[in-house]
Simulated scan of single mutants.
Amino acid sequence: MSDDPTPLDRALVARDQAQAERAATFTFLDWADPTLVAAARGAGPDVGAALALARGLGRVSGELGRSTWTVLQALASLGAGDLTVARVVEPHLDALAILAQSATSDGAVAPSPPPPGSTFGVYAAHAPGAQLRATESGSGWVLDGTKPWCSLADRVSHAVITAHVDDVQRRAFVVDLAHSGVHLSDAPWVSRGLAAVRSTGLRLEAVPATPVGPADWYLTRPGFAWGGVCVAAVWFGAAAALAQTVLDAARRREPDQVAGLHLGRLDAALRAAELELRAAAGAIDAGTAVGAAGELVAARSRNAAAAAAELALGESARALGPGPLTSHEEHARRVADLTVYVRQHHGDRDLARTGSLLIGARG
């Protein structure tokens, strides 16, 4: 009987060697869940497919506060795959986490579980001249007024939405967006980034609403800051994908010092962002990310992720030139999407707020 390796043996050895080589090759996405990256790439930028993925990932929201890196890794992986998908999934998971937190908070009012198959937006923005009022009657709460910046209000079935209960206090409510009293603004959506994720104003007329927690609970709960960390994870994931594109391009040609400079800057920024996100996850799980400490944890992770995103946009533009912006659909869309998405960070104002937290100032 021959001891010579069979073709199958040789194939298995070759496979193992290839896997070892790939494992030894650096990637900016070594932290990611490849299954979720692929799922997002496959679904994007189709909103319907993204909503289906959001429904399937609903259970992930339950890990916030006990295995938070699982949530951040999932969102970052989706962001690395397709930002439209991540932008759809993130508020849905946020809403489910809000509902779960209201069910376990002392003195909070927990609404009934949403119908199976529901998808959620979270609408908490306020703007001058736009106010949503909540009033209580014998039959329950109703909402009247206007609400700005309601992303995907034309596609999701429900929303967690904040409204004034008096001149000072706000309260969160769940509403069914299919109610006849919900009217979408016809204002144009001309964004080149996140083009499929339309954000619109809403006008509500006597819309039934179910309270989520007591007055001001939505803004004062620890999970408010945690939601900001989740958004930062998406920015980080997209920035890492841009960096990987730069790295892949550098490996296809003879590298020079300038290519190394681009990659060194990207590595430093992404490493800092990842460490902040992991630190935030650890603090949330340990129960220390509450109050001002929770605000600081969220601010640091958002600052680091936003800085990495801005740097990735700039470094990828200089390293790659106009070619992929004009000929590579996925890259061009990622650049446009991230340019819009990271504007949720308020730049110097958020950094100033971080400094105020460090010295104990308020306001």
Rank of each mutant, 00 (worst) to 15 (best):
A233K: 02
T288R: 14
R278F: 04
A281S: 09
L270F: 04
H262G: 12
A240Y: 07
T288S: 15
W226H: 12
G227R: 02
A249M: 09
R265A: 08
E274S: 02
A239M: 06
D256K: 14
V234M: 06
A249L: 08
L261S: 13
P255T: 14
L242I: 08
F236V: 01
W235L: 05
V229P: 08
W226I: 06
R251I: 09
I284T: 13
T245I: 00
G228Y: 04
E274A: 01
I284S: 09
D267G: 05
L261V: 10
V229G: 09
F224T: 15
G227S: 08
T245S: 04
A232L: 06
V229Y: 10
A240M: 04
Q244M: 01
A281Y: 01
T245R: 00
A238R: 02
A239V: 02
V258C: 13
A240F: 05
A238L: 02
L270A: 05
T245C: 01
T288Q: 13
G282T: 12
V229W: 12
A281C: 05
A238I: 00
L263Q: 07
A281G: 14
C230V: 04
A268H: 15
A268V: 10
L263Y: 02
A233C: 07
A283G: 12
L275I: 04
A249I: 06
R278W: 01
A269E: 08
A241C: 04
R253Q: 14
V234S: 03
G228H: 04
A269D: 06
R278D: 05
V231Y: 08
C230W: 02
A243P: 01
A283H: 11
D256W: 09
L270W: 03
R252P: 14
W226Q: 07
I284M: 11
L270T: 00
L266E: 02
A269S: 10
D267A: 12
